[in-house]
């Protein structure tokens, strides 16, 4: 059933694109609503029929993975969820993968947010990943959720020298000094690795400029695909590794699965979303071709 459904759907998309191709040859522009319709189909069909592809980590993703992998167990890793629900479908797979990796490796994880609307996503990640997959890990010992503070880069400017100037308690109102995980932690400089996931401002770039660089602390990033080109200049000197968009997340997931067979059965949203992304890219390419065909047809007619 699935197979036939897929074949019928792909046939409909192909027939529609063929129709638009013929229209382009006649020098007619494709209306905006048709573009939207085909994009919708291109994304929906792979989701409905579960089309996915295998991935292999590129060097920039592998570098991020190796950085966490090579830290000795018990290292202090701060993960900042610098995004809102809008961006979550694209970057949540990255935070999931980072949290799984850090926990599996036995690191201590400190969560925080520079985006107000990102705070509930930390709580969910803790519930969904740590509490279910790593029930032996204890809040306040193996991980802590510091929560959100307003001020964006201003927060970084302060916690680079003194975390307690901004955070006196964790999100549950527990005094930081009473948490074993905070022993010996005075500022960001005491962290072994900073991970920022987010595509806006403040985001990865701000963590590099206001924390990683001045504090000489390694930074690994994850961001929406659209922001990735902006961050390439920082790799590999100021940014140890970078996950760009769904593809970056899918590559990290595949690397995690390869290194830790225990994750073979856990959800891999990044890999799953590569199907829709591939189809969407193909449809965009088809429309670019149609646009050029109609442009040259009109040009040859002198219109």
């Amino acid at each position: 059933m699935n197979k036939w459904g897929l074949i019928i759907s792909l046939t409909i998309i192909a027939a529609g694109l063929l129709y638009l191709f013929i229209k382009s040859i006649r020098g007619r522009d494709v209306e905006r609503r048709f573009i939207f319709l085909f994009m919708g189909l291109a994304v929906a069909v792979p989701i409905l029929f579960n089309i996915s592809f295998s991935e292999k980590a590129t060097p920039i993703v592998k570098a991020a993975f190796d950085k966490i992998e090579n830290l000795p167990p018990g290292s202090k890793i701060l993960i900042s969820f610098d995004y809102d629900p809008a961006m979550a479908p694209e970057v949540n797979p990255m935070t999931d993968a980072f949290v799984r990796h850090a926990m599996a490796k036995g690191h201590r994880v400190y969560f925080m947010n520079l985006w107000a609307t990102g705070q509930p996503m930390v709580a969910t990640a803790i519930d969904r990943i740590i509490k279910t997959e790593f029930p032996e890990k204890k809040n306040g010992v193996d991980y802590v959720n510091l929560g959100y503070k307003a001020g964006g880069t201003g927060v970084l400017n302060v916690i680079i020298t003194d975390i307690r100037k901004m955070y006196l308690t964790d999100v549950n109102g527990i005094n930081l000094d009473s948490l074993p995980i905070m022993n010996g932690i005075r500022s960001l400089r005491d962290m072994d690795l900073l991970i920022s996931v987010g595509g806006g401002l403040p985001g990865v770039k701000e963590w590099v400029l206001f924390a990683g660089d001045p504090g000489h602390i390694p930074v690994v990033g994850g961001c929406a695909a659209v922001s990735a080109p902006l961050l390439y200049p920082y790799y590999p000197n100021q940014l140890m590794g970078l996950l760009g968009g769904i593809k970056g997340a899918a590559e990290y997931e595949s690397e995690l699965k390869r290194k830790y067979p225990r994750f073979a059965e856990t959800p891999q949203p990044g890999i799953k979303m590569m199907g829709p992304q591939t189809m969407a890219h193909l449809v965009i390419m088809a429309f670019i071709i149609f646009g050029n065909i109609s442009y040259f047809v009109l040009k040859s007619r002198g219109e």
Binding site: N70, P72, S187, G215
Partner: peptide, 16 residues
């Protein structure tokens, strides 16, 4: 104990 570095490393910066 204030930190641990891997074999082959011969320096450490104590920032606390």
């Amino acid at each position: 104990s204030i930190g641990f570095v891997s074999a082959g490393t011969s320096s450490y910066r104590d920032k606390s």
